[in-house]
């Protein structure tokens, strides 16, 4: 195995394109190093992107949105007061990944590229309408986060395509997001189901909504028909119940050691309902 520390993304792309065998990227390494240790993969080339300038920066863009570098850790997000205030749902999704030690290294982009349908930070990014900047030998493109995962452990990033940053849109007033997951314990676990909701309100009525379901299909899925139930509504118990049922209906989970299909279908509705309430309260400006 060769270990590379490129000083620019273009250098990383060059290394990747000229490499033989399996290439893996190292940011926080909280998935890759564990996989290495248990022998799940043994890459021929390990490209560490942490030495590239800017990868650990959180920047406010001129259009009012945020650009989060590929190696920004969970702790950096949590400690960023303005970002946490604007996107609490996205940040709380990241915060749920692992322990304090993991948080000091784990990254949004790593969580996304690991390709798990249960990735806790991914639903929040998708619900936020986030994009990622993908660099390759033919330049940089902006891709919606939801277009990256394609199945368990799989992304549609090709050889020499590397994510450099996550981009969040400008946050407006009367908007709010939330992410909740279900685990049997209280921490240090993997989502049995997860749901992120992002809402914008006009006179306390939902004007736009994005709902994203985790761990109930081969990849994190956008639940557009569920989001549509919320439009034009102000989230009373009746709507929440319809919304909850819709999420359960849309979920296509499997049964495995972490939960049965039946359980996941039922509980995704419960978690989605609770996440919607939380997002709505945040959009109203309540804590």
């Amino acid at each position: 195995m060769q270990y590379h520390t490129p000083s620019s993304f273009s250098e990383a792309v060059t290394i990747s394109n000229s490499a033989d065998g399996l290439v893996k990227y190292l940011a926080g390494g909280t998935d890759v190093l564990v996989q290495l240790k248990i022998g799940n993969n043994s890459p021929d080339h390990l490209i560490d992107i942490k030495k590239i300038p800017g990868v650990k920066e959180i920047a406010l863009r001129e259009d009012g949105g945020w650009t989060i570098g590929a190696a920004v850790s969970g702790v950096q997000l949590t400690n960023h007061k303005k970002l946490s205030r604007e996107w609490p749902g996205l940040v709380e999704g990241m915060e749920l990944v692992g322990s304090a030690q993991i948080q000091s290294r784990a990254t949004l982009v790593g969580n996304l590229c690991n390709g798990s349908p249960a990735a806790d930070s991914v639903p929040g990014m998708i619900a936020a309408g986030a994009t990622v900047s993908v660099v390759s030998s033919s330049g940089t493109t902006e891709v919606l986060v939801e277009d990256i995962p394609v199945g368990p452990g799989l992304t549609n990033l090709g050889t020499g395509e590397i994510i450099t940053a996550v981009n969040l849109p400008k946050r407006n007033k009367h908007e709010g997001d939330a992410y909740l997951r279900f685990i049997p314990r209280t921490e240090m676990d993997i989502a049995v189901v997860g749901c992120a909701v992002n809402l914008s309100l006009e006179n306390e009525v939902i004007r736009s909504a994005k709902v994203v379901l985790g761990a109930v299909g081969p990849k994190v899925e956008v639940a557009t028909p569920a989001a549509e139930c919320l439009l034009g509504e102000n989230l009373d118990e009746n709507i929440l119940s319809i919304f909850s049922d819709k999420c359960s209906e849309l979920a296509k989970p499997i049964s495995d050691k972490r939960g049965s299909e039946e359980f996941r279908k039922e509980v995704i509705g419960v978690i989605a309902k609770r996440a919607a309430k939380k997002a709505y309260d945040r959009a109203l400006g309540n804590k």
Binding site: P184, R185, T186, E187, M188, D189, I190, D256, K257, R258
Partner: peptide, 16 residues
């Protein structure tokens, strides 16, 4: 055995 790791063999953690 499907859960041969502490991730899925769920011993209580302190916060539980």
């Amino acid at each position: 055995l499907q859960n041969a790791a502490f991730l899925d063999y769920r011993i209580p953690v302190a916060s539980d």
